[in-house]
């Protein structure tokens, strides 16, 4: 499943993202990249203007092939935003998606330390060192696929719940709508006219 024949060799690629000036405006990305080269098992370091954009992702894919990378560290934004993006990217290059690690240089560093060039850069280096240390020990993982029951539950029979239930029903799904009151309608049913069109609520 992993295209790389030298899988048991740890070969880390580090991709340092400028995020335009989002990161590069507060962190010395060149120094971070330079530092990353000194870390164990790091085979290549690439700086990108926007790693998440197509050119950035292509650079990751190319580097995986060119340098026979078995681990990828993307030093950019929070994994809560782009981890799925980069997992998909390394998967497309034949690497198990769990061999990717991210260092959060944006939300946890550049955005909260503007004007603190030295401190922010030192922190960014540590974040990358931590990510590389972790990446070296990552193992490929297989995800469990579980079936999803084709039925939706809508909790609450006010205007939002009714609307959601109708839409799902129209799309051909089974829907269970639960409402604690004897009738659906919610608060809206108690209103007279509604803004801005002055039509009746029910």
């Amino acid at each position: 499943m992993v295209a790389n024949p030298t899988n048991d060799k740890i070969r880390v690629g580090v991709f340092v993202c400028d995020c335009g000036l989002n990161i590069a405006g507060a962190v010395d990305c060149a120094a971070v990249a330079e530092y990353a080269e000194t870390l164990p098992d790091v085979m290549c370091v690439v700086r990108n203007k926007y790693t998440c954009a197509d050119p950035g992702q292509n650079e990751i894919k190319n580097a995986i092939h060119q340098h026979q990378l078995t681990r990828v560290v993307v030093a950019s934004c929070t994994p809560r935003q782009h981890e799925p993006t980069f997992r998909q990217c390394v998967r497309e290059a034949g690497l198990n998606p769990y061999l990717l690690e991210m260092a959060n240089l944006r939300e946890h560093c550049s955005w909260v330390h503007p004007g603190e060039w030295d401190g922010a850069t030192a922190k960014a280096k540590d974040l990358v060192a931590s990510a590389v240390a972790r990446a070296r020990l990552l193992q490929p993982q297989e995800e469990l696929t579980v079936p999803v029951t084709k039925r939706a539950l809508v909790i609450g029979g006010g205007v939002a719940g009714i609307e959601a239930a109708i839409e799902l029903g129209d799309a051909g799904h089974q829907v269970v709508l639960v409402e604690k009151q004897p009738s659906i309608g919610g608060i809206m049913a108690q209103l007279d006219k509604t803004f801005p069109t002055m039509d009746c609520s029910i």
């Binding site: 539950l153 809508v154 909790i155 799902l168 608060i187």
Partner: peptide, 15 residues
Amino acid sequence: TREIGSIIVAIGLDV
């Protein structure tokens, strides 16, 4: 008892 695959929470507000 129903098996459910997805849930929409639309429990509204109190005044």
